[in-house]
Design a protein around this nucleic acid. Structure first.
Lengths: 101, 101
DNA sequence: CTATCATTTGGCGATTTCGCCAAGCAAGGA
DNA sequence: TCCTTGCTTGGCGAAATCGCCAAATGATAG
């Protein structure tokens, strides 16, 4: 018996859904910022430099993918990384970039 | 002095470009297959089940991102993984999926 | 040289993504 | 209660993505 059975087409689609959530510069910037601690939407808005509604939609995409979670305290909503292993992707991305001779 | 300076907006865009290449079910399927060795386009066409031109374009996207490389031998073009660390992403993706309560 | 096989490229409609604006909504503060 | 603040949602046009078909390319065979 094999430890990992071959994933189905749906498995790959589910994985792709998560990768899609990570496939945007602003969202990678947000994740990088969240790696240093939780932030409210207003913090991230200032960081990203886009309309608050745009940033909110980016955060919704990350939340639906299961990458971040949120927490409303008072008037502000705080976001934080739920699955920090996505940070490991960054190292590999650098390898890809540097391997591009 | 810090070992890793804060990446610029362009750095995040460059990373996102690579992530975009990975953000598709068929391309993840292809990468999974290539993890077991090089394959010609016709092999991958059969695996993916789409038009050969579609598969070829997926491979072009992966190649432009620097994830795979190709090698024409005779009439066939063989593709293989150039940066195997992308395979590590799969484990993390499973974590994300299982953390989605 | 001509024909054929494997692959790539061009281009098309259909779908999705992106960022903005405006409107809606919940939590405090006056 | 009424207003403001912080955020989300709806919707729009612009742009990118996807998969197909048809045509072009490149290498080999005859």
């Amino acid at each position: 018996m094999q430890p990992f059975p071959q994933p189905t087409r749906d498995d790959f689609a589910a994985r792709a859904h998560i990768m899609k959530a990570l496939a945007h510069g602003s969202r990678l910037l947000i994740i990088d910022e969240l790696s240093r601690g939780e932030r409210c939407v207003c913090d991230l808005r200032e960081l990203v430099g886009h309309d608050m509604s745009t940033v909110s939609k980016h955060l919704t995409i990350l939340k639906n993918a299961g990458i971040v979670e949120d927490d409303k305290r008072g008037k502000q909503v705080y976001y934080r990384l739920k699955v920090p292993c996505v940070l490991n992707f960054f190292h590999c991305l650098e390898s890809v970039l540097s391997a591009r001779s």
